[in-house]
């Protein structure tokens, strides 16, 4: 739908265009402060873009409960409920690996 924008249509797009990337669920854009959106050399922090959504959800719930030990992720996972976590997981799963 967004292909071939005519200059005259720009304003319409601005008025009406669903800005998909802008619709990342609450919290998702903060994750990339550590989990790089594009590959970064020499980082020991794993990327999450392109990971399977159920895997992210399981890991987050294990971080939250403490079933899976972590340095910082347990503290962060506790800020999100199941529904919010699922939305973030689905969003990252849909991002290019």
């Amino acid at each position: 739908m967004h292909r071939a924008l005519l200059p005259g249509l720009t304003s319409m797009i601005l008025l009406a265009g669903p800005a998909t990337a802008a619709d990342a669920p609450p919290g998702a854009s903060s994750c990339t402060g550590c989990h790089a959106s594009k590959k970064v050399s020499d980082s020991v922090i794993p990327r999450i873009a392109g990971r399977k959504a159920p895997d992210i959800v399981t890991l987050m719930s294990d971080y939250r409960s403490g079933a899976w030990p972590s340095s910082v992720m347990g503290r962060i996972a506790k800020g999100f409920d199941d529904r919010q976590t699922e939305a973030i997981a689905a969003w990252f799963a849909a991002q290019p690996e």
């Binding site: 990339t32 970064v40 922090i45």
Partner: peptide, 9 residues
């Protein structure tokens, strides 16, 4: 690792 990432981001 965070520093490298945030600089790139």
């Amino acid at each position: 690792s965070w520093f490298r990432t945030i600089a790139a981001e």
